[in-house]
């Protein structure tokens, strides 16, 4: 098995220590950092994402795989910057104002990073203005809003309105998700995309970033 495959395999089983060691070895062996990232780390995370979508793995397996991926990415980051490697797109993500719950948001973030997208995490309790201002300042293609509660999901509609007011609706797509959110709700508030799970959200974000570029 090649070292790249080993990285992918170990990532899929959440072996953070092994992934770190293998990535370091690959770097030392002179393997192109983009290859280590794409064919090792992101490829492994993609497998986990697909399995998660198909209920073949569950939240714990995604979390430990993402932890392993992040450990590897940290080692690669300076080299990728040096190489001028570009992310596939840029997303700002957050849980909407009034809602402090973040596991769904974090899962989506991990999955998007696993697809090679740069994700700016705004945390929880994020106001519509913060979403929109960040999208403008950081030149994001997507605003991604999460909510756990039926009482806070309406803030997503405010994000759409705020983006309209700021004049960025033709440039920035708005994705929504979370426990109480549905396609019907997405359509009602005029958002662009709803997905029912984190892995599908990452797939959709790749498509939206591709169509925006």
């Amino acid at each position: 098995m090649s070292i790249i495959n080993e990285i992918s395999e170990n990532l899929q089983t959440g072996k953070v220590k092994a992934v770190k060691e293998l990535v370091q070895t690959a770097i030392n062996d002179g393997i192109d950092p983009s290859t280590i990232l794409n064919d090792g780390l992101l490829s492994g995370m993609n497998v986990i994402g697909e399995k998660f979508k198909n209920n073949e793995v569950y939240v714990p397996e995604v979390l430990v795989a993402a932890r392993a991926m992040n450990a590897g990415v940290q080692l690669l980051k300076p080299l990728l910057i040096e190489e001028g490697v570009q992310a596939k797109g840029r997303v700002c993500i957050g849980t909407v104002q009034g809602d402090l719950h973040d596991i769904g948001k974090n899962l989506v973030k991990m999955m998007m990073e696993g697809k090679g997208i740069e994700v700016i995490d705004l945390g929880t309790d994020v106001s519509p203005e913060t979403f929109v201002n960040t999208a403008i300042e950081k030149d994001c293609q997507i605003i991604c809003c999460s909510a756990l509660l039926t009482t806070t999901m309406d803030v997503m509609g405010e994000v759409v309105k705020c983006a309209e007011k700021a004049g960025i609706r033709d440039k920035v797509k708005i994705m929504v998700g979370g426990a109480p959110v549905t396609q019907e709700f997405c359509d009602k508030i005029g958002a662009d995309c709803y997905t029912s799970d984190a892995a599908s959200a990452a797939d959709a974000a790749v498509e939206l970033c591709r169509s925006a570029s």
Binding site: L100, T124, L149, T151
Partner: peptide
């Protein structure tokens, strides 16, 4: 921002925001 990091009786460190009705952030 006024939110608090709180140690719960279960030993969980949670972030709560007074006046905000939500499940706490862990």
């Amino acid at each position: 921002d006024g939110s608090q990091r709180v140690q719960s009786p279960d030993g969980l460190i949670e972030r709560i925001k007074p006046g905000t009705v939500s499940i706490p952030s862990e």
